[in-house]
Simulated assay, not measured.
Amino acid sequence: MASGTQSTGMLTREQLFHLFDRFSFLTSQPDVKKKISGAVQDKQEAVAVTTAIQEEIFSEMGVDPRFGISCLGKVSTVYENDMDLVIQFYKFLSKEEVACDEAELEEEEFAEKLLNQQMLQEQQLEMLKYMRKFNLDDQCAILEKLHQHMENGNYESETSILSAEQIEEIVPRKVSPLYTPR
């Protein structure tokens, strides 16, 4: 490890954003895509190549690569109250998954997976728009039920959506109290 290389503490918000941006840029380059695909054809794991790319970025940043990779495992807990960072982190993870899928899947399979992912995201957006009609307490109840639904479904993609009917079942009806004699 070179002197002056960061190997303790936690990566800063700025360092993480730099990593996310740089990784996104690099994995969109044709030569890097070719490198990942070539590794898969040579029976290597695509994720090993994307991890090596992340390690190179950490080295450029003056961060010990092993330390940087270990910090990634802590991002969602250390920065749990920084929604912008957590969202960017999950986009970064998604970008890595897409880069690996593009290298590992046949062209038709990859296109189908992207289409399915886009349709899922559209359904999620519609669900979120529908949820906005409810007050904050109801929205919290809906999100709690969604979390349980996803947990019970082993976090499979299709469990990340609740139908309007399911949402209506969660939200208590606003009815006038029944008359009860004393």
Results as ranks from 00 to 15, higher is better:
residue 1 M to S: 12
residue 2 A to H: 11
residue 2 A to K: 10
residue 4 G to W: 13
residue 5 T to F: 12
residue 5 T to V: 12
residue 6 Q to G: 01
residue 8 T to A: 09
residue 8 T to K: 00
residue 9 G to E: 11
residue 9 G to C: 07
residue 10 M to T: 05
residue 10 M to R: 08
residue 11 L to E: 04
residue 11 L to M: 10
residue 14 E to P: 07
residue 14 E to K: 11
residue 15 Q to T: 00
residue 15 Q to S: 02
residue 17 F to L: 15
residue 18 H to Y: 10
residue 18 H to C: 09
residue 19 L to E: 00
residue 20 F to C: 02
residue 20 F to I: 03
residue 22 R to N: 10
residue 23 F to C: 08
residue 25 F to K: 10
residue 26 L to T: 03
residue 27 T to L: 04
residue 29 Q to T: 00
residue 31 D to R: 05
residue 33 K to A: 00
residue 35 K to G: 03
residue 38 G to S: 09
residue 40 V to E: 02
residue 41 Q to C: 06
residue 43 K to T: 08
residue 45 E to K: 15
residue 46 A to F: 01
residue 47 V to G: 03
residue 49 V to A: 00
residue 50 T to E: 09
residue 51 T to V: 11
residue 51 T to Q: 12
residue 52 A to P: 05
residue 52 A to K: 08
residue 53 I to A: 00
residue 54 Q to E: 11
residue 56 E to M: 05
residue 57 I to W: 09
residue 58 F to S: 02
residue 60 E to D: 15
residue 61 M to N: 09
residue 61 M to Y: 06
residue 62 G to Y: 12
residue 71 C to G: 00
residue 72 L to R: 00
residue 72 L to D: 01
residue 72 L to A: 01
residue 77 T to G: 02
residue 79 Y to N: 11
residue 79 Y to S: 08
residue 82 D to N: 14
residue 83 M to W: 08
residue 83 M to C: 06
residue 85 L to I: 06
residue 86 V to R: 07
residue 87 I to W: 13
residue 87 I to T: 08
residue 88 Q to G: 04
residue 93 L to F: 09
residue 94 S to K: 03
residue 94 S to Q: 15
residue 97 E to S: 15
residue 97 E to M: 14
residue 100 C to Y: 05
residue 102 E to V: 04
residue 103 A to W: 03
residue 103 A to M: 12
residue 105 L to D: 10
residue 105 L to C: 10
residue 107 E to I: 14
residue 107 E to A: 13
residue 109 E to H: 01
residue 109 E to R: 14
residue 110 F to K: 04
residue 112 E to A: 14
residue 112 E to N: 15
residue 112 E to L: 08
residue 113 K to R: 14
residue 114 L to K: 13
residue 115 L to A: 12
residue 117 Q to L: 12
residue 118 Q to Y: 07
residue 118 Q to V: 08
residue 121 Q to A: 07
residue 121 Q to V: 03
residue 123 Q to W: 07
residue 125 L to Y: 07
residue 130 Y to I: 00
residue 133 K to H: 06
residue 133 K to W: 10
residue 133 K to L: 07
residue 134 F to H: 11
residue 138 D to E: 13
residue 140 C to E: 15
residue 141 A to E: 13
residue 143 L to G: 07
residue 144 E to G: 14
residue 145 K to R: 15
residue 145 K to Y: 14
residue 145 K to H: 13
residue 146 L to S: 04
residue 150 M to K: 10
residue 151 E to A: 10
residue 152 N to Q: 08
residue 153 G to Y: 01
residue 158 E to G: 06
residue 158 E to S: 06
residue 158 E to L: 12
residue 160 S to N: 06
residue 161 I to T: 15
residue 166 Q to L: 04
residue 166 Q to P: 02
residue 169 E to K: 13
residue 170 I to V: 10
residue 170 I to T: 01
residue 172 P to Q: 01
residue 173 R to T: 11
residue 176 S to W: 09
residue 177 P to E: 13
residue 180 T to A: 06
